[in-house]
Design a protein around this nucleic acid. Structure first.
Lengths: 200, 200
DNA sequence: ACCTGAACACCGTTCAAGT
DNA sequence: ACCTGAACACCGTTCAAGT
């Protein structure tokens, strides 16, 4: 029947870290702060997450599972900004983190970048791209309809956001300093703020 | 006639910092390391450069004024926006287009994404990344100094712009419809507008 | 196998004290 | 005005020691 007590340290740490990230996505998530919040020692934290980067990756992955898979965009109880960010984060979550992110871009590279592009796989990639574009554009349309987004060229805005998402997702596959979590959040917010404030 | 002896601490610090940056652009440039190399105390360093950020900005400005004195960014006859876009486009130009872009990303992929990252190439990539970041940040500093850019966190802004550049440059390597030129320009303008208008 | 907490080697910033 | 260096409050990581 126990579950609080029985919760492994790994889970406690992850819970704490995700809670802290939820409260302040720009937070630093230091070893000691997370360990304290989780009620474990720094040594234990390090045992489960050998590196600070590993912890941040786990948080990034965990967020995806928590965020509802169906369209958060319609949940009018939350600010438009938050909902759009949520949705974009979901897209980003598909890219994964660490090895998964590297494998994902590996696939894309081997299929669409390395070989001389044939008409066929050109079309295949364009379909994927268009799908992503369409999805983001849909979210913008929803926000437009409820007046949270000024009149404007939504497909242009979507293109902008998709470009930012691509930049962020390749950053996940490349080496990085341990602060990806905070910087990714910052950049995502910046992009969304631009779109929501743009009067063009 | 004296100049070595008479060199003020400020200069000694700046010299040391620039030398260290020159030797290893990926270096951390910590207070103590720079102060030691300059032969002054950390307190003195802080007196002239109240913050670590201030020191790095000074180095950045110094370096690029030496290396590329005729950077387009200094051409005050043109609007800030145009100059910044110009500079960013130059970065993008290095990525090339078509086959060249594909080959470029191929190199990056094979070196930094595909293989399990060793400490060594991790560091190598981070140096490149930091260099790009610093370059963009330098441009922002120049615009800041002439009042074309509101007070704010320039390294954050630079991170945003670099992410957009990455997104745009990978788009150059991937299949795309024939309108890349226009859409790339749109997105680039959007990103720059965001930075120039941001009051945060 | 899991966990502890001290210890290590760093950070950047502040500040009383000197000249 | 300029400079010193100790002190403060942090980092992330390592590791002998416990259970």
């Amino acid at each position: 029947m126990e579950q609080k007590t029985g919760a492994g340290s790994r889970d406690k740490v992850l819970q704490a870290a995700m809670a802290m990230f939820g409260e302040n996505p720009g937070a630093r998530l230091s070893v000691r702060a997370v360990a304290a919040r989780a009620g474990v020692s720094t040594g234990s934290l390090r045992y489960h997450f050998p590196t600070q980067r590993a912890l941040q990756d786990a948080v990034l992955t965990g967020i995806y599972d928590v965020i509802t898979p169906d369209d958060r965009i319609h949940d009018r109880s939350a600010p438009a900004r938050d909902r759009l960010i949520d949705c974009l984060r979901q897209v980003l979550a598909l890219a994964g983190v660490g090895e998964q992110a590297r494998a994902g871009w590996g696939e894309i590279f081997k299929t669409y970048i390395e070989p001389e592009p044939t008409d066929e796989n050109r079309a295949a990639y364009l379909a994927i791209e268009r799908e992503a574009q369409r999805r983001v554009e849909h979210w913008l349309t929803v926000l437009s309809n409820e007046g949270a987004l000024a009149e404007g060229d939504n497909s242009r805005r979507a293109r902008f956001l998709v470009t930012v998402l691509n930049g962020l997702s390749i950053a996940r596959a490349l080496p990085s300093e341990e602060s990806i979590l905070a910087t990714e959040t910052e950049t995502l917010h910046a992009a969304v703020d631009y779109v929501l404030d743009s009067r063009s």
